[in-house]
Design a protein around this nucleic acid. Structure first.
Lengths: 207, 207
DNA sequence: GACATTTTAGATTGTATGATCTAAAATACA
DNA sequence: TGTATTTTAGATCATACAATCTAAAATGTC
């Protein structure tokens, strides 16, 4: 019994995500958002509250559609292959992006002002999720012998998370294939067991 | 034959650095700078040109005083110890800082807007400098047998740079000692040669 | 001691911003 | 058809900002 909305919320969130991802929160004006989404300012405020809430919604969508989906895709593989596929996807995306936007989540980490804000908690929580994915893969791989047991799954998971964050930084400021691939290659090399499970010649896990 | 300046340029740059480091470029207003430096707006503009130029000057000072000095300190040590001391310093500083500002250079990487700007080139150049420091240490360590020769110095240098960048990201958003220490520990572990140079029991390089 | 020159201080300017207001438009239900 | 309700559109608001302007203050030189 009222005027219906003329827009698709998902499409608007995608458009807003593009703005925030490419330019960051502060550098994206409400006018940019109205131009990109096609909505007028009043509609944006009526539907989402304010600029920050829209940003959080867009970031949340990014986390699920980009990071969550990647984890779900990789989780179907063997432990070693999951980790390798994860980094392979990130590298491909990072190097293909001509505007070098990097990862919207990492970008958000540098825009989360107050230490106790909900945005910071949201970013930190997602990083915990990624860390657990890595540690889980390492634990499973060590159990079946396809990943070296030279360090605990937790510690290797922390290391892989740091390497991932590092590649995201470098992808923004020094998007050189050799640099990113080299950084990841060394991290993946330490996963290889000295003596593969089957006893045959050494080869990368998960192939 | 003119009125002398009433301020010390180095002290003003330090004060500006504090502002930009803690709050970033955009979130630091000229009023913040006048309040922190003690100079009026006209003096700031007269002495440094504009806000961006002052930021670049402050960042340059940070790079030399913080990063350059660290490299020079560590370069006096043996190759393995140099890398370990570098990360130990970074970890200590990161975990001690109650406001979790991270590294001003990495923060700057996320505020360098245009892909062809001079700020981006400056940040990228400093990262190259760090990468060369790492690669140089690895090369020397591999030559004298104190660092494992499992991968090329260039590739290990790229990996160490990525881990460093990753710890800087995590120091801002998840400043947990176990997390940062674990991330670095795994990276340092792969430097250890399987058979130490002298043939005695395995131990970390540079001790 | 007067002039030239630079720095200082505070007021001021133009602009961009996030957010709101007013009113028209579009639906559902009676 | 008429009313209630929500969404839309564009104008508008107050504010914060970087930067500039005007004029006073402080030096060295003549």
């Amino acid at each position: 019994m009222a005027r219906p909305r003329e827009f698709d919320e998902a499409a608007v969130l995608d458009a807003a995500m593009e703005c925030f991802w490419a330019n960051g929160y502060e550098a994206t004006s409400v006018r940019d958002l109205t131009a990109r989404t096609g909505l007028c300012g009043a509609s944006l405020y009526n539907a989402f509250g304010d600029k920050r809430l829209l940003y959080v919604r867009a970031l949340d969508r990014y986390v699920e559609d980009s990071i969550g989906a990647r984890i779900r895709r990789c989780e179907t593989l063997s432990p070693g292959a999951a980790i390798e596929a994860f980094f392979a996807e990130v590298l491909e995306r990072s190097l293909q992006d001509p505007s070098h936007r990097g990862c919207m989540l990492v970008n958000a980490a540098f825009e989360a002002g107050s230490p106790d804000g909900d945005l910071r908690a949201m970013v930190a929580g997602t990083l915990v999720r990624i860390e657990r994915f890595f540690a889980g893969c390492v634990r499973a791989g060590q159990a079946d012998g396809t990943i070296a047991a030279s360090a605990s799954p937790e510690e290797v998971g922390r290391h892989l998370l740091a390497v991932l964050m590092g590649t995201r930084v470098l992808a923004r400021i020094r998007p050189e294939p050799v640099l990113l691939q080299g950084a990841v290659a060394t991290a993946l090399a330490i996963l290889r067991p000295v003596r593969p499970a089957g006893g045959e010649a050494a080869r990368p896990p998960g192939v």
